[in-house]
């Protein structure tokens, strides 16, 4: 009680002393953002050393120190999305169930369209009930053609069709929606590998982007997801969705640290333009707010 009061008072006069309690609070903040405990402990340990050497004196400096560590880990530069130079560009969207793959594709199609691209959307989720209809609705909203077969069709065949159909219609890109799959289901991951092979065979190169769509509320399992998906279809980046809630998405730090996968896009709502480029600074500031 008294200690708390003291802390509040010192905070008010802006010269909070840096004691162990402050460091622990910062560690808590990192972990509550879903940053893995081992990374959080390491970062705070470095901070502790800096404090011991009197390089860091106030709690504002301490927060700044950790923010810098976080930014260093996720990389400050925004990473570009890639397009094919002279053939069909294919972007593949993968992820576990319910992370927002279909919604993300709708939003991405909308941005691309506004940038003068002409994408076709391939309905590769032939499993979930009404997934095709959901995607077609996004096709209507964005004015992009959607290539779909019947429910239960082989997704690789849908992708094959989509690429060829895009060529005939004069589309310059294919965005492939895929069924949500848990990464520990071998047969579904094999299906993904097959889609990847079909793209490579049809366009002469693997997809220019294979994006893991990751729900910002995801905890430590996110790392396992990134590793497992990249084995089936080498990932090029992450789309972090539902970042408009209270979840901070700190697991992307661990993913970046262990697999070097950058976050490329951020989903921030259900509307068609609720998507933006990932900004490491803003992301980090939010984490400590």
């Amino acid at each position: 009680m008294l200690k708390n009061l003291f802390k509040k008072v010192t905070a008010l006069i802006g010269a909070e002393k840096l004691d162990e309690a402050v460091l622990e609070e910062l560690e808590e903040q990192l972990i509550l953002s879903d940053v893995s405990a081992n990374i959080a402990l390491e970062m705070v340990d470095e901070l502790r050393q800096a404090v011991a050497k009197r390089q860091i004196k106030t709690s504002a400096e301490a927060t700044g120190f950790l923010e810098a560590s976080v930014i260093e880990m996720i990389g400050e530069q925004t990473t570009q999305l890639h397009f094919a130079e002279d053939s069909m560009t294919v972007w593949l969207f993968v992820g576990v169930n319910g992370v927002g793959k279909t919604t993300t594709i709708g939003k991405v199609a909308h941005i691309l369209k506004s940038q003068g691209k002409n994408p076709l959307i391939a309905a590769g989720d032939t499993f979930r009930a009404a997934a095709i209809e959901q995607l077609q609705e996004w096709g209507n909203r964005t004015g992009c053609p959607v290539l779909a077969q019947q429910a239960g069709a082989d997704p690789a065949a849908v992708v094959f069709d989509a690429i060829n159909s895009a060529r005939k219609r004069g589309n310059d890109m294919v965005l492939v929606d895929t069924a949500g799959r848990l990464h520990n289901k071998a047969n579904l991951m094999n299906e993904l590998a097959k889609i990847n092979r079909v793209v490579e065979k049809e366009t002469g190169s693997p997809p220019q982007e294979t994006l893991l769509v990751l729900d910002a509320t995801t905890g430590q399992n996110g790392l396992t997801q990134a590793k497992a998906f990249t084995e089936a279809a080498p990932l090029s980046g992450i789309v972090l969705t539902k970042w408009d809630g209270t979840a901070k998405g700190g697991i992307v730090l661990t993913i970046r640290n262990e697999t070097n996968l950058p976050v490329k896009l951020l989903g921030v709502g259900e509307q068609i333009d609720d998507i933006c480029e990932f900004d490491a600074r803003e992301f980090t500031t939010t984490m400590f707010r």
Binding site: S33, D34, T217, G219, G245
Partner: peptide, 9 residues
């Protein structure tokens, strides 16, 4: 698969 934010929700 939800992380720390489960509490808030």
């Amino acid at each position: 698969m939800t992380g720390q934010d489960a509490v808030n929700a």
